[in-house]
Design a protein around this nucleic acid. Structure first.
Lengths: 236, 236
DNA sequence: CATTTTTGTTAAGGTTAGGTTAAACGTACA
DNA sequence: TGTACGTTTAACCTAACCTTAACAAAAATG
C-alpha cells in the first residue's frame, strides 16, 4: 500500500458544508486543503501538488468552471470533480468541456464521493500518470523499495541496489508494460544524453536483467531506437 | 476528408431500446454498430476500430464489466461509457475499475448522453489523441500497437515491427480500405521521394504482406501507379 | 505483341544499436 | 595508503535495421 495520503484541493464557498466535508475526507485519510472561492482556490493550487480537485460550481468571484479551466492550463492531468446543486444539462456539458473527470449532484451520498475518489485515483495510478512520489513497486514476484534501494524476490534475501540501478528500475516500473524512452532515463538519471551515458545505461540494463532473471515472467524488452519496456506476463 | 463520423459500439440486450438508441445516435451523425450481448459485442469490437463504446451493464452471457475488461486488454484508450438500470454503489466502483470513462443511469436523458459523448470525444481529441497520436489499431484478426511497435495475431505471440514496418502499416491502417498514396508514405516516412526510396518501400510492403498472411481476410492491394490499399474483408 | 514501366520478392551488404564482460576510474572512508 | 563500492569506458560480439541489387511478374503503352 501507499504510505503518503492523497492530497485534495476542495473549493467550496459554503463555510459550513466546506468544513464538514473537509473533516469527513480527512477522517478518511485524505489531506485536504480548503479554499473559500475560485480565486483562493487557484492560488492554493499553484502553491502545491494535488492528486484531485473538488470544485463547487456556484461560487462568488470565480465559478468552478473558470477555475477548472485555469487549473487545466497549469496541469493537464489532475482529476477534477464538480459539485453542483442540481442537474442542469448546460452545466454538465460545460463541466466536461472544462475537463471534468466526474460530476456529483448535491445533495450527494458521501460514501459515493469516497468511492468515486478512490476509483479516480486508482484509474490515474494504473494509467501511469502519477507520480513522483511513488517508491514501492510490485514487479511480478519482486518487491522494489526505491526509497531503501532494495529488491526482494519472494522470501529470498533482499538485493541491495546501487543508486543508478535503483533509479533505472524505478523508471521502468513507473512505465510498466509501456515504453520507457531511452532519452527519458538519460535526461532524468544521467542528466546528459550522449554516446557514453547511453552505453552506461545499457550496462545497467544488463545488470537489472540479471537480477530479474529469477522470475521468468518478468523481462526487460528493447524497442530498437526507442527505449525499453518492463514486461510482466500475467499468466492465467 | 477528415470529417468521417465517429464510430460507436453499442452493446445493449434490450432489442427495443437498443434500436431506438441506435437510431437516435445515427440521426446525430454517429456510425453505430449494435450488439445484443457481451459475447457479440466483443466479436464486433475486435473486427473494427471504434471511437467510443457504450455498454449496458446487465446483459446475458457476458456482463458489461467483463466486456469492458476484455476491451481494455485489446485497447487501452478507447473511451467506455456504462449504462446501468439504477445507481448501485458497488456498480459505480466496479465500473470505474473496469476502466469506465463515464456512467449513465437509466432512464437517462438522451440529450445528456449526446453531450457526454461529445465531451468525451472532445476531451480525448484535445488530449492529443488525434490522428497523429492514434497508435492502436484492429486490422481483421490483428492488433497493431504502433507505440510499442508490435503486431499481434489473435493470441499468438506478438511480432516485433521495425520502425519502418511499423510506420508503414500504421499509415495503411489510418487509410483502411482506402487508398494510401505512395507519395504520402515516401514523404512522411522516408522524407524523400526517389527511385530508391520507392523500391525500399516496396520491400517493406512485401514484408508486411508476409506478416499479414496469417489472416486471409486481410491483404494489401496495389493500385498501379497510385499507391496501396489495406483491405479487410468482412464476411457474412 | 513487343517494349517500357511499375511492382513483387528474395537475398546480400553495410551500418548502427544493443548485450555483455571486464578493466579502468573515481571517491569515500577506514 | 589501501580497500570497497559505484560508475564509466573499452572492447568485442550479435542482432536489428535499412538499402541496394537482381531477377521475375504484372500492368501499362504504343
Amino acid at each position: 500500500m501507499e504510505t503518503a495520503n492523497k492530497k485534495i484541493l476542495l473549493v467550496e464557498d459554503d463555510p459550513n458544508f466546506g468544513i464538514v466535508l473537509k473533516d469527513y475526507l480527512t477522517m478518511n485519510d485524505f489531506d485536504v486543503v480548503l479554499a473559500k472561492n475560485g480565486m483562493e482556490g487557484f492560488e492554493k493550487f499553484k502553491k502545491d501538488n494535488f492528486d484531485v480537485c473538488i470544485l463547487d460550481v456556484m461560487m462568488p468571484y470565480k465559478d468552478g468552471f473558470t477555475l477548472a479551466k485555469e487549473i487545466r492550463e497549469k496541469n493537464e492531468h489532475v482529476p477534477i470533480v464538480f459539485l453542483t446543486a442540481k442537474t442542469m444539462k448546460e452545466d454538465v456539458l460545460k463541466g466536461y468541456k472544462a475537463g471534468a473527470d466526474d460530476y456529483l449532484n448535491k445533495p450527494f451520498d458521501s460514501e459515493v464521493l469516497l468511492m468515486k475518489l478512490k476509483a479516480i485515483l486508482q484509474r490515474k495510478a494504473s494509467n501511469g500518470l502519477a507520480d513522483s512520489k511513488k517508491f514501492e513497486f510490485t514487479i511480478g514476484g519482486f518487491q522494489l523499495n526505491s526509497k531503501l534501494r532494495f529488491l526482494k524476490y519472494k522470501d529470498e534475501e533482499a538485493i541491495k541496489l546501487s543508486p543508478k540501478e535503483n533509479e533505472l528500475l524505478r523508471l521502468l516500473a513507473l512505465h510498466e508494460n509501456d515504453l520507457m524512452p531511452r532519452e527519458l532515463a538519460l535526461t532524468k538519471i544521467w542528466r546528459d544524453d550522449n554516446y557514453f551515458t547511453s552505453r552506461s545505461m545499457d550496462v545497467y540494463i544488463a545488470k537489472l536483467r540479471k537480477y530479474l532473471k529469477k522470475d521468468e515472467n518478468v523481462e526487460i524488452l528493447n524497442i530498437h531506437g526507442e527505449g525499453f519496456r518492463l514486461v510482466v506476463k500475467t499468466e492465467e
